[in-house]
C-alpha cells in the first residue's frame, strides 16, 4: 500500500516532512508527533553504529560521529531486522566522506571495529585436539600439503595506517597520552581472534599476515609458509603458529588437492 511507502519515505527523508492522513485528538499539527518516529528511527540506528564503533566515535567526537552516521543511515538503511552486523559498508562510506578526509586512518579503524563485531558473533568452532595438531605439525612429509580450516571468528586487516596502535590506545586509561605515542602513518596488520568469550586484536608482521591470509583462503601449509618467507626471510613460523594455536584458530586440517 502506498500509505506505508509515504510514511517510510518521510521517516528517512533528510528534511523533516510529515506524511498526509495523520490525525491528532486535539487538532494539533501532527508534525511534532510524527517527529517522534523519525527520531526513534534515526537515533536507534546511530546508536547501533556507535555501539559497534566506539573507537571511531572517540576519534571524531560524538557530534561529528552522529552527523556522519546519520548520513550513512540515510544512504544505507539496514536491509535486515538483524542489526548485529549493521555497519558493513560504514568504513567504505567513511573513506569517501569528504569531511573525514583529514583522518585517512578513520575508515581503517571502522573496518577493524566491524571485524571485531563479526568475530564476537561468528559461529562457534572447536579447535583441533592438541594431540592431533601436534602429530600433524611434527609430520614433516604430510604437513606442507595440509589445508587448515581457520576459526570463523578469525579476521585479518592489512592497513596502511597504525590501526592496531590506534585501537589499543583507546583501551588505555590515558587515551591522549597513548595516542601521542602512535605514529599513524605506520602500516600495521591486525589479527582478530575470539579467545574464549573475548575478542582479541593483535598486531602481526607482514609475513605472518600473508601466511594467515593464505591459510584462510585454503592454500596448503607449505605454499602459505613459502609465500610468507618470500616476503620476509626472517618470518617466524613457530611464533605465528603459536599465536594461532593459543587463539584456538586452527579448527581442522584436510589433505584434498581440490582447493587453490
Amino acid at each position: 500500500m502506498n500509505g506505508q511507502s509515504v510514511f517510510a519515505g518521510a521517516l528517512l527523508a533528510p528534511e523533516a516532512i510529515c506524511p498526509p492522513g495523520l490525525r491528532t485528538w486535539n487538532g494539533s499539527d501532527p508534525g511534532p508527533r510524527f517527529a517522534v518516529y523519525r527520531n526513534n528511527v534515526m537515533v536507534s540506528l546511530i546508536d547501533a553504529l556507535a555501539d559497534s564503533h566506539p573507537v571511531t566515535r572517540q576519534l571524531v567526537g560524538e557530534e561529528f560521529f552522529a552527523a556522519m552516521a546519520r548520513l550513512f543511515v540515510l544512504a544505507q538503511p539496514p536491509r535486515s531486522p538483524v542489526l548485529a552486523l549493521y555497519g558493513e559498508g560504514f568504513a567504505d562510506f567513511i573513506e569517501a566522506f569528504p569531511p573525514a578526509a583529514g583522518l585517512p586512518y578513520l575508515a581503517e579503524v571502522a573496518r577493524l571495529e566491524m571485524l571485531r563485531v563479526r568475530a564476537w558473533h561468528a559461529a562457534d568452532a572447536a579447535p583441533m585436539a592438541q594431540q592431533e595438531l601436534m602429530r600433524l605439525l611434527a609430520d614433516t612429509e604430510g604437513l606442507p600439503a595440509a589445508r587448515f580450516l581457520l576459526h570463523p571468528a578469525l579476521g585479518l586487516l592489512r592497513s596502511r595506517h597504525a590501526v592496531v596502535s590506534l585501537w589499543a590506545a583507546h583501551q588505555t586509561g590515558d587515551v591522549a597520552a597513548a595516542l601521542a605515542q602512535v605514529a599513524v602513518e605506520d602500516a600495521e596488520n591486525a589479527l582478530v581472534l575470539r579467545v574464549g568469550l573475548e575478542v582479541d586484536i593483535v598486531r602481526i608482521a607482514d609475513a605472518a599476515a600473508i601466511f594467515i591470509m593464505n591459510l584462510q583462503q585454503g592454500v596448503a601449509f607449505g605454499a602459505a609458509a613459502g609465500q610468507a618467507l618470500a616476503v620476509e626471510p626472517e618470518f617466524d613460523l613457530a611464533a605465528t603458529l603459536g599465536l594461532l594455536i593459543r587463539g584456538g584458530a586452527l579448527c581442522s586440517a584436510s589433505f584434498s588437492r581440490s582447493a587453490a
Partner: peptide, 21 residues
C-alpha cells in the same frame, strides 16, 4: 506494528490505520 518497508528495516514499531483491509 510494522518496521520494514521497501527492503529497509526502520528499527521502530510503526503505527497502522485500523480498517477492514
Amino acid at each position: 506494528a510494522w518496521s520494514s518497508h521497501g527492503g529497509a528495516f526502520l528499527n521502530d514499531l510503526l503505527p497502522l490505520p485500523y480498517h477492514a483491509a
